[in-house]
Amino acid sequence: MNQERIFKVLLGPHISEKATLQADLAGQYVFRVATTATKLEVKKAVEKLFEVKVKAVQTVKVKGKTKRTARGIGKRSDWKKAYVCLEQGQEIDFADAE
């Protein structure tokens, strides 16, 4: 996997209350990923970017919400997130990430 694809697969961490609890309790981190990304691509990207060992990856397709606007009904884009479970003793510190 080349360097360019790594940055296209991982769009960034998904920060929420649930994601923070998952990171603290289960060692799982949540990332926003490209809708075309596979589990294997996500695993390789996280391992290469953060230099950690990934145990498992679970992906979820999130449907965009329908919103009412002044011009009628609009729809937010669909997106994909990945739950990345790390090996025992591994952790990601987003403050030190380059």
Rank of each mutant, 00 (worst) to 15 (best):
V46W: 08
A82E: 01
K39R: 15
K63R: 15
V42D: 01
L10H: 07
Y83H: 11
V60S: 13
V9G: 03
K65F: 03
T20C: 10
A45T: 04
T69P: 00
T66S: 09
K67T: 00
L11P: 02
A37K: 08
L86S: 07
S77G: 07
I15G: 06
E51R: 01
L49W: 07
V30D: 01
T59L: 10
N2C: 02
V84C: 07
Q22L: 14
Q28T: 10
W79E: 03
K63W: 06
L49P: 00
Q90L: 08
K61L: 14
Y83F: 13
H14V: 09
K81D: 03
A19F: 02
F7Q: 11
E51L: 04
Q3D: 13
V52Y: 08
K61I: 10
L49Y: 11
A26L: 14
K44H: 12
V52T: 06
K43S: 09
Q28K: 13
I92D: 07
Q58N: 14
L10Q: 02
P13K: 14
E41P: 01
A82C: 06
F7M: 02
V57R: 06
K44V: 06
K48P: 03
R76V: 01
V42C: 05
L25K: 13
P13L: 07
K39M: 09
L49D: 01
Q3T: 15
